[in-house]
């Protein structure tokens, strides 16, 4: 299964891209997070939430969505 990962806000500066596709299997959101941190070690220094299919989800949840969003700290208003 191919997943699309989109990076928001300052995460685009850390990764140098806005989005990327992955075909590797990840069982949980946490395992995807761990994989992304190995590719982009600077992600360790920032708190970010992960959403799948437009819903923010926990690292313990199964990864079954195809649209994954990485969301750095919110600063609206």
């Amino acid at each position: 299964m191919e997943i699309k990962v989109r990076y928001f806000g300052q995460l685009q500066e850390i990764t140098g891209v806005k989005e990327a596709s992955f075909t590797l299997p990840f069982d949980t959101i946490g395992s995807l997070r761990a994989h992304l941190i190995t590719i982009y070690p600077d992600l360790k220094n920032i708190n970010f939430k992960i959403a799948q299919d437009n819903k923010i989800d926990s690292d313990l949840s199964d990864l079954n969505g195809t649209l994954i969003d990485l969301l750095p700290p919110f600063s609206g208003g």
Binding site: K49, P73, F74, G76, G77
Partner: peptide, 22 residues
């Protein structure tokens, strides 16, 4: 302010920037 995934990039007069923190 706490729950919506909105991201503010603060530009300075010299066009450098930092990311807003609420």
């Amino acid at each position: 302010k706490a729950k919506l995934p909105i991201f503010g990039k603060e530009f300075f007069e010299d066009q450098s920037h930092q990311w807003k923190v609420n």
